[in-house]
């Protein structure tokens, strides 16, 4: 069988894996952004009680590998009575890891806001919540776009680790096929191309977005 025929035969399976990767990555990234915004606001306003909790969470999540986090969720948590499906573990793991990276990124953006903005907000009597909504978030999020872009790419690549808990995403699909048919070169080629298909257009879009936002920042 020619290489091309082998590749063609495997495409339906890779297509499935492709969409699983995209779906889980999207859910994980959206969740991570929400967790990241909440954590970074807590850190920005130094909310009592919650602030140290966020610090502990981010240090743990950032300093341990996703693979061990997934093993914990998938193999150890059922011992405590918490049983999740592999896909749920994947998304939860990605949110746990990604949330801490997003928090660091947003915190960096918030720190870039000039203190006079905050003082002006306080001077006209805005509450903390109003400050977050009208002053910190609009400016801080714009400043965080470069970090956000890097994190999104990073998290999509991390989904390849889902293969260890047998989620049939792209990498798992390729490894399965290699195990069954031994057409190593062909399947690895499709795998690399599939990741390139997701990541190259995305990184071009994100670079464009970064430029737009930077342009906006100069406009004021």
């Amino acid at each position: 069988m020619s290489s091309w025929a082998i590749i063609q035969q495997s495409l339906p399976l890779f297509q499935k894996g492709f969409f699983i990767t995209l779906k889980l990555a999207t859910l994980g990234i959206l969740g991570a952004i929400v967790v990241g915004i909440i954590c970074s606001l807590i850190q920005y306003f130094h909310l009592p009680l919650l602030n140290p909790l966020v610090t502990i969470y981010t240090e743990i999540a950032r300093n341990t590998p996703l693979l061990i986090q997934l093993f914990f969720l998938y193999y150890a948590f059922p011992q405590l009575g918490l049983r999740l499906t592999a896909s749920q573990c994947g998304v939860v793991g990605l949110i746990f890891l990604g949330g801490s990276y997003m928090a660091a990124g947003f915190t960096g953006g918030f720190d870039g806001i000039s203190p006079s903005q905050l003082e002006a907000g306080q001077a006209i009597g805005l509450s903390r919540w109003q400050l977050a909504h009208y002053v910190v978030l609009p400016q801080g999020l714009a400043l965080s776009v470069p970090a956000l872009a890097a994190n999104i790419i990073f998290l999509i690549k991390e989904t390849s680790i889902f293969t260890v808990i047998a989620i049939p995403e792209l990498t798992n699909t390729a490894l399965d096929l290699i195990g069954m048919y031994y057409h190593t070169n062909e399947y690895l080629l499709v795998l690399v191309v599939a990741y390139a298909l997701i990541l190259i257009p995305l990184s071009i879009i994100l670079t464009y977005l970064e430029r737009r936002v930077r342009y906006g920042a100069f406009g004021n």
Binding site: I178, T184, L188, V192
Partner: peptide, 15 residues
């Protein structure tokens, strides 16, 4: 940068 490290490991390990 684009290829995830898992994939890089397998690329070298198999090829």
């Amino acid at each position: 940068r684009i290829v995830p490290t898992v994939v890089l490991l397998f690329l070298f390990y198999y090829i």
